[in-house]
Every structure is written in structure tokens, then in C-alpha cells.
Nucleic acid binder design. Structure first.
Lengths: 145, 145
DNA sequence: CGTCCAGATGATACAGAGTCTCATGTAGGC
DNA sequence: GCCTACATGAGACTCTGTATCATCTGGACG
């Protein structure tokens, strides 16, 4: 659950038109708890009879991703999921039980990439780090293992 | 380029049948340079007229992945690619120009995950780290940027 | 306000990845 | 060599994401 205005503002600031479908998309996204897939939004949009086409949903997601207010995750299952987040470099901790995500800032990865660069000779331009586990709430409930 | 026998041995050790299509798959995989996609293998198999069905290719890839001798990467493009590798926990550096990958062992991620766990309260079970950049060879040739 | 048009939309068709089913084939234990 | 459980290939199918294109509309400008 985030604020739809943040998404809309991002569009506005970047000079994109504030259309009805885009506002609706911002609403849909801000109502999601944890991560969500494009398919989730398609279902939600249809459930609420918003009349938004599939193509528009994919286009808006791309847009939000470009603006950095939504980020794509690659779940272990292979699915592509999205999370709304701040447009600064950071990583995500993902609860494998409830899907909740939390942002964490770069805690020491820079040192790691530098060390890898030194050892392999690669020039490292970017990286992706995703942490999977159980959030406090899920870990607290009857332990699944 | 890796050794096909390593893949075949892994199947054998895990008690799977050593069928002709599986041997052929091991050959195809070991001939790949850098990462490859399922589609690559489908094309290669058809080019060499190996008579291996698409389904079998996906099945064998899953199998090799389960055995840990092949690992799935999520490329920034969103594609799923695979790399043959050792069945121990490690990460990959991926050349975004030629696709070459190199394994790197865990250089300091443990500290990072522990620190994140402490700060977020999550119980972190697994993580994925992928580093993208240019390998020495590609960085050395006329610099693209 | 009304006009206007580039940018945005929805419907539809399409391409590709990955899965499922099922009849047939074969590895390898006996 | 026989036999059966496991593996395979063909093909249909589902789902994700993209391309096309005629229509619509936000918002700049008068």
C-alpha cells in the first residue's frame, strides 16, 4: 500500500499526460499489498470494471518502471513481479510467504562488486540483489518448517 | 564450454536414466559459450537434426537445474537464461556484451544479509546476486561508450 | 470556452515461452 | 532377451508480452 499520488506526480514531472487509465493504474498499484504481477492488475482492472485494456496495463507498467517508481523483481518461480518503490538505487527483501517487500539501501554491496571486479577483471556496471525470506509477521506465526 | 560428462554424471548419480536425448542435451549445453536460453537449445537441436522435442529440452533443463549443474539467470531484459556451473552456492558475473559468465564465490554477501536481517527483522533464507558488466576482453576492445 | 493534434488508448492479432496429455519408445534390472 | 517404469515426441494449449491501427482525448493555445 503506497500513495497513488506519488505515481501520478512522477508521470506529471516527467511530462507524461495524466490520463484516466493512468490514474486508475496508479490507484490499482497503490492498493496492492506486497509484490504483484501484470496479470494481477489485469484481473483487478477487470473486476473493478475499469475498462482498461491489457495493452495499456503493460504500457503503464513499463512507464512506471522507467520512471523508477515501480521496480521489477524476478521471483524464484521465474515470474516477473513488480513493487512500488522509491526511485533511488536500492534492493528488496521479499517475504516468500506473504509477498511483502521492504526496501533496503545498499549496505555493503559496493565493496563486494569492487572485490569481484578486482578478482575477475570484469568492469561491473550494474548488479541486482534480491533477498528472500520470511517477514517478521510470517516468521512469528506458526513456523512452517 | 564445459564438460558434458559432468552433466551426465550428475544425472547418473541422482539415479536418472541416461537416455540418448539427455546425452545429446549435455553435449549441446557443454558447447554453449556463455549463457544460453531454452530457445537457443531448441534451435541448436533442430540445426543438428538431433530429433529432440521441445518438451524434452525444457524437461532436461529443469532436471539439470534441480541437480544444480545448471543455473537460471534472469537477464535485465527479462529473459531467462541458463549457465552450466558447479553445484555449490555462488554468484555470477555476466558480460552484457558477449554473454560470458564467470562464477564467483560468496565474497561478503553473508555479512550483508545478516545486516539486512538485523535491520528489517526478516529471516533471510536465500538470496540472489547477479553482477552485470563487461568482461576483460569486451572492455578491452574499442570501448563502446 | 472551443479547436486541434500529438500522444494515449483499446481491440485485436500475433509471437514466444513454457506446460500438459497421451500414445509410443527404450533403458536397464532381472 | 523380456518386461515395465520411466522417458520421449508430437501437438494442443495457456499465458505473457508486443505490434498494429483506427479511434479518442488531454491540455496547449487562441
Amino acid at each position: 500500500m503506497t500513495d497513488a499520488t506519488a505515481l501520478i506526480d512522477a508521470l506529471d514531472r516527467a511530462g507524461y499526460r495524466l490520463t484516466e487509465p493512468r490514474r486508475a493504474m496508479a490507484g490499482l498499484i497503490s492498493d496492492q499489498t506486497g509484490h504483484f504481477t501484470a496479470a494481477d492488475l489485469v484481473v483487478d482492472a477487470r473486476t473493478r470494471r475499469l475498462g482498461i485494456g491489457r495493452a495499456t496495463i503493460f504500457r503503464a507498467l513499463d512507464l512506471f518502471e522507467d520512471l523508477g517508481v515501480v521496480e521489477r523483481l524476478d521471483l524464484p518461480s521465474g515470474d516477473h513481479a513488480y513493487v512500488p518503490c522509491e526511485p533511488i538505487h536500492h534492493h528488496h527483501v521479499i517475504c516468500s510467504s506473504c509477498g511483502r517487500t521492504e526496501d533496503v539501501d545498499d549496505p555493503g554491496i559496493d565493496a563486494v562488486t569492487r572485490s569481484v571486479a578486482r578478482r575477475t577483471g570484469f568492469r561491473i556496471d550494474s548488479h541486482r540483489l534480491e533477498l528472500f525470506g520470511l517477514c517478521p509477521a510470517c516468521a512469528g506465526s506458526v513456523d512452517p518448517r
